Computed example of a mutant assay.
Amino acid sequence: MCPELTFLCVYMQVLSVFKKLHRTRIDVFRDDEKALAAARLKINEEFKKNKRETSEESIEKMIKMGSDVETVLREAVLQVEHVEENKLLLRPREGLLLENVPYCDEPRKNS
């Protein structure tokens, strides 16, 4: 494969992960300016820190890491607001809490 084409392909993957992380950041931390700014700073910092990397193996690992981080943000991070003493407000995102099972001290019995 032509080196220019390989570079372009890798560049497009990196850019795709970068954009996806920022879109997810905006969705996950909606209405929380402090968290939005901190996440923006961290994403940009990590990509700038590694912008001179030339090892294809290292770049592929970082692309995988960025994709994994995006998945964790999208699937596991909950936005909670402290509204009163001892009271929190959960702000669920569409598709995040797919199974709503009430808490029970005893294990479920298999049917």
Rank of each mutant, 00 (worst) to 15 (best):
C2K: 13
L5Q: 13
T6C: 14
F7G: 11
F7D: 15
L8I: 02
C9V: 08
Y11C: 14
Q13T: 07
V14T: 11
V14R: 07
V17M: 06
F18C: 02
L21V: 03
H22N: 13
R23M: 06
I26A: 15
D27F: 10
F29A: 13
F29Q: 03
D31K: 14
D31A: 12
D32M: 05
E33L: 15
A35Y: 09
A39D: 07
A39T: 08
I43S: 07
N44A: 04
N44H: 10
E45D: 04
E45Y: 02
E45F: 01
K49M: 04
K49Y: 02
K51L: 03
R52N: 15
E53M: 11
S55Q: 09
E56H: 12
E56V: 10
E57Q: 11
S58G: 00
I59F: 02
I63V: 13
M65S: 06
D68V: 00
T71I: 08
V72S: 01
R74W: 07
E75S: 06
V77L: 13
Q79A: 06
E81A: 06
E81M: 05
H82Q: 13
V83S: 06
L88S: 02
R91K: 11
P92L: 01
E94L: 04
E94R: 05
G95S: 11
L97C: 08
L98H: 03
L98K: 14
N100C: 04
P102L: 05
P102N: 08
Y103E: 04
D105C: 07
E106W: 04
E106H: 08
E106C: 11
P107L: 10
N110V: 09
